[in-house]
Design a protein around this nucleic acid. Sequence first.
DNA 1: ATGAAAGCGCTAACAC
DNA 2: GTGTTAGCGCTTTCAT
Lengths: 344, 344
Amino acid sequence: MAATITDVAKVAGVSKATVSKFLNGTHYVSQETRERIAAAISELDYAPNRVAQGLSLKRSHTIGLVVANIGNPFYAELIRGAEEVAASRGYTLLLASTDGEPKRESTIVNAMRQRQVDGIAFASVRLADREVTALAKDGVKVVLASRNLPDAEVDMVLVDSVKGAKLAVKHLIRHGHKAIAYVSGPLSIAQFQDRLKGWRDALREADIHPSAEHELSLDRMDVEAGYQAGLQLLGLKERPTAIFTATDNLAFGIMKACDELNLTIPDDLALVGFDAVPFGEVSRSPLTSVDGSGLIMGQRALQLLIDRIERDQRAPSDNRQVRMVLQPTLCIRRSCGCQPGTEI
Amino acid sequence: MAATITDVAKVAGVSKATVSKFLNGTHYVSQETRERIAAAISELDYAPNRVAQGLSLKRSHTIGLVVANIGNPFYAELIRGAEEVAASRGYTLLLASTDGEPKRESTIVNAMRQRQVDGIAFASVRLADREVTALAKDGVKVVLASRNLPDAEVDMVLVDSVKGAKLAVKHLIRHGHKAIAYVSGPLSIAQFQDRLKGWRDALREADIHPSAEHELSLDRMDVEAGYQAGLQLLGLKERPTAIFTATDNLAFGIMKACDELNLTIPDDLALVGFDAVPFGEVSRSPLTSVDGSGLIMGQRALQLLIDRIERDQRAPSDNRQVRMVLQPTLCIRRSCGCQPGTEI
DNA sequence: ATGAAAGCGCTAACAC
DNA sequence: GTGTTAGCGCTTTCAT
């Protein structure tokens, strides 16, 4: 149905090779034949078949993006950023979501490799450091977005989680809180470890010793999980007066729990999240949150990845690993107890 | 680097053709050679190159999904549904977002065609009916998800918007409201026209004659747009006591406006949205909304599309167009004025 | 400056 | 049952 390079060549009265050269500007083509080819192309409405091109060139101009859960607004933002730079640089995204299942993850990686993606961006890794490193060694260009595998030898972009958590907790302390709980995502994820550390450090520096019951780690990070955690925490004898959560979704769940228990935020409970998803602006109580910039992370990750892919074209096996760490800021709204105009 | 079918053939001591036959189960292969091939495959860790396969078969097992804006949770849900069935049926998704720009849309379509996608699912079309029809005639399998192009001859799955809107407005009327405004997305989109019609019909049936000022149509559908609309509507002398919005995002914006004006939902203003995105559960006021089921729409759309793609393999050019229309339900929370336990 | 030919990895007749 | 061959649409030496 669609025209091929052979059709164009025929119509223009030249060889496929010449058309190809014209198309890629790789060799000189005389003014006259250039015009004939151009005419043929527009006459036939020809567009190169990227699949064939890919087979020949061994480059698909396609990048795999794997996220844990598209429904989580943090990933949605990240995808948005990724898609934006991919498109602007002539790549398209193959999207897949793991739903947190490690098994799905390797299935996905295989599927992507078979499709000859030029690289893979992971916004979700359950794979071990060594598996990721193995991938990279195997020639697959990899970048980690918002995930920290300390020992994996691949590029990554992440937010300084320790610092972010300290920002959050110190802010809560400044509001006068002492009983500040931490609700975490899976501790197998380094970023959540870091946030835990930030929480601990901030408390220690203020000479506060948290009750063991106030440190909770969940294995999911959806609203429902946060809700359960909220119920648990708020049912304690020693009830926390403030909670810091590892992600906004978890904070939203806590809001739901407060709702049910007729607790008011921030009066009965102060709350600070992590990610600063846009939606926090219109959540039950406007959510104060550490800005992890999903959007920017998605953008940077793809830039890094594409840079590496294209660099590798001419200077194969360049091994400088880059770890880009973004500085977090606190996005202050009202769930922390601040009043408009009188932020502290 | 990666092993090819030729390598496998060599190691197994057979021809490529035989390996291919084994792989696709398309011809009989003797028990013995089957074992030799299997051994070779696992020894070499071979996986077929889908690009080469695609070139030969003219099928990429890839489907393009184009949405307006990934950041909108409605689309996020739709993508989730789409990804789920695509993956389960062995396809992967090429994702692109238009940001509402019609120009980006045709760029995207071209890019996807060059990549030989087996079909395209549009969750966003600014293209005219005839362009979409042209695409279909041109052999591209197309499905519309949550978009209604009345004259396009392609499959579509959508929610009954007229009915959904009536559900919403009647509910508001039952709550005693008479001054019920409608905040719409772009009226160039048929679904929003339908929601407008539903609003009008419901009012007319109740013998209510809406003020012209209470019908607002926006050209974007983000929270910010809703916020502006809210400010405008709530600044009116004849202030509405209830608002029905064409999408949840718009409703969230209105909540923000209420916040700023110190208006309480549902006491000062009742609100009903459309889409029932999960987040409505934890929005400023739990949002009552027409359930448009983004998730289901994404699933169904991909099923339809894949069915058509695969059907077309054996019975080319089957032209029965299918329009699947989902029945909306009202997801009652609290922004409409209902109390837990006493829904009306 | 242009063309002929081989090759990318796979499938599909058609022989044997 | 299995192998030979040609071909999918493109790029790329290597000649000319």
